[in-house]
């Protein structure tokens, strides 16, 4: 049964109305169709080992060509903090009015970097793994989740560096340090949702990798990473200050400073009202919205 080809190169055969019936009769399913939500989550769970191993492999491959190797995991965040300290703390003098500016700065930089790096990596997680997508079948959410896992590994190292610095500055461990775990967990959930959102964004609109860094930078300046936003923005209307105070990055950074630092301007009375509810709400909102947004385009990844 050979087929005729038209002069324009289009095969002249009509879609077979029986194909669907035949497929149904023998229990065939549409190839590459997006599975239901429950099934999708089950498959994602099945791939948890792959996510872990992939992240570990990628992390260890990251600096294999650098002479200092894995030492860069520690060096990168340290150098970041040092640069910000010189520019903002010494040259621009944003340290005025902030007690223990070094702990303040390093905590802010490291916590914000966790979110920023996760988003930046998420943008490229689909577009950068096109080969893998075209070769193997797995729930695509594996890719942004791998990036999140990689950044989590980096964060654990950063946190150790952070703790050393903070203790060296005289903030000794107390009961409040136990809060580090829930704060990081909530931030992780928040970042995961953001990474999935960014992954779909980066898979289609290829400009996202270009404009997103600017958005992230603005976000950083509005999050009180390098200075106390409240001191610098006296003349802002109240509603703007409230927004700056309650946006997710500021919430997670403030909570971490509250947990780690003993200086009096990071006592509980300076945290915004309902801060833990806010932290939880941002995390869940981000995760659900990001996941749904990503999942809805599942079939489309890998087309271009």
């Amino acid at each position: 049964m050979s087929k005729r080809v038209g002069p324009d190169g289009v095969t002249k055969d009509r879609p077979d109305p029986q194909a669907a019936e035949l497929a149904a009769k023998y229990g065939l399913s549409v190839s590459g169709a997006r599975p239901g939500l429950a099934e999708y989550l089950r498959r994602l769970w099945e791939h948890r080992y792959f996510i872990a191993e992939f992240a570990r492999a990628r992390s260890s491959a990251k600096y294999t060509r650098a002479r200092l190797g894995g030492f860069w995991f520690v060096l990168t965040p340290l150098m970041n903090a040092a640069v910000y300290y010189v520019i903002f703390g010494l040259l621009l003098g944003t340290s005025r009015g902030v007690e223990d500016f070094i702990s303040f700065l390093v905590t802010g930089v490291f916590i914000f970097t966790f979110t920023r790096d996760t988003v930046t990596a998420g943008v490229k997680s689909i577009s950068g793994e096109r080969g893998l997508i075209r070769a193997l079948h797995f729930p695509r959410a594996v890719l942004p989740l791998t990036q999140v896992t990689m950044k989590l590994r980096q964060l654990v190292i950063s946190m150790l560096v952070l703790i050393v610095i903070v203790v060296a500055r005289g903030n000794y461990p107390d009961w409040e340090w136990l809060l580090i775990v829930p704060v990081l967990a909530l931030q992780l959930v928040f970042n995961t949702g953001l990474a999935m959102w960014a992954a779909r964004l980066g898979s289609k609109v290829s400009d996202a990798a270009q404009w997103l860094p600017f958005v992230l930078r603005v976000w950083m300046y509005g999050s009180g990473v390098l200075y106390m936003v409240e001191q610098r923005a006296d003349d802002l209307p109240t509603w703007a200050l409230v927004i700056l105070d309650m946006q997710p990055a500021a919430v997670y950074i403030d909570l971490m400073r509250y947990a780690l630092m003993n200086t009096h301007n990071f006592g509980a009375q300076y945290l915004p009202p309902h801060v833990w509810l806010l932290a939880l709400g941002w995390a869940l909102l981000s995760l659900v919205a990001g996941f749904v947004y990503f999942y809805r385009a599942e079939e489309e990844y890998g087309r271009d």
């Binding site: 879609p15 194909a19 669907a20 035949l22 497929a23 023998y26 229990g27 065939l28 399913s29 549409v30 190839s31 590459g32 169709a33 793994e129 080969g131 893998l132 997508i133 075209r134 070769a135 193997l136 079948h137 079939e299 489309e300 890998g302 087309r303």
Partner: peptide
């Protein structure tokens, strides 16, 4: 294999087909 979305038409398969490519990343 379900790795390229179809513009039009359908592919029905029994189970999950596997593509054994030499350039799997």
């Amino acid at each position: 294999a379900g790795l390229m979305p179809a513009e039009r038409g359908r592919v029905y398969t029994d189970g999950q087909p596997s593509l054994l490519g030499v350039n799997a990343a």
